[in-house]
Nucleic acid binder design. Structure first.
Lengths: 129, 129
DNA sequence: CCTAGTGTTCTATTTAACTATTACACTATA
DNA sequence: TATAGTGTAATAGTTAAATAGAACACTAGG
């Protein structure tokens, strides 16, 4: 896995696992790959994986069973809540950044629309390659 | 200044200075505060400031004059270009993150609109305090 | 010339993140 | 009960970021 060296790897692992859950690749009750396997897959150390998982366990999003494995919580509401929180964090951050760059609310929305439209074209291009 | 400990301080200083330029607090040709003064203002070490400035000088956005100070480039086009680049980076990041959270293009735009609308209410609330 | 203000560079130290390695604890199952 | 698979913990070493402090180089103005 490719990491952005501007932010701690364990933090990026958390985000990766969040995404797996949000897209349904990991469902409530699912067992995660073994920590040693995850370490190999992500090409990082077991301790780094453990740090990410440890925080997610504290957050109540994962549950650990010694000798068995790590599992996604069965509490679906907790997952829904997490997703809303993650989306909100993204929106808040981009809004504040663009606002700091002196864009008005309208300009922020317009620029996002434009970006997505252009991206759509670019993706269409790719498909037709 | 408050920093996010998930990303290097020198990187956050760069962003801070970018924003000062985009909002017009720092205009083309303006002299920046002395590096030692900046270090005091931002409550960081001179070397950390220097690292941020050094990169911006390399980028051609700042110009250094030994014994005089650091100045914002007079090349306004370079600044315009930078702003577009910064906006684009923000849009790209938020788009990819929200897309990874399984939101459609339409949902991404809708959620941003909703966020801004709600934020507007919140800000109105504050004003009336 | 001297001095104050400025950018620049260097060395040493500290801290957090990451890695490497090993050991331990628990579970399931043959 | 032995073994393979799992999570957990501890120790030690490496690296990048940040800090602290000092020294050097240049500019402007008295």
């Amino acid at each position: 896995m490719k990491f952005d060296d501007k932010v701690p790897i364990y933090y990026q692992i958390k985000n990766y696992l969040y995404h797996e859950m949000m897209t349904g690749a990991l469902k409530p009750g699912d067992k995660l790959p073994a920590v040693r396997q995850l370490a190999v897959d992500l090409t990082v150390n077991v301790n780094t994986v453990q740090r990410a998982l440890g925080e997610m366990i504290t957050e109540g999003i994962l549950e650990s069973q010694r000798g068995k494995g790590n599992f996604v919580t069965m509490d679906e509401q907790r997952i829904t809540q997490l997703k809303e929180q993650l989306v909100m964090e993204q929106l808040e951050r981009v809004y504040e950044q663009l606002h700091a760059l002196n864009l008005t609310d309208e300009q922020i929305i317009a620029s996002l629309k434009q970006y997505i439209a252009q991206r759509g074209q670019r993706d269409d291009q790719r498909v037709s390659d």
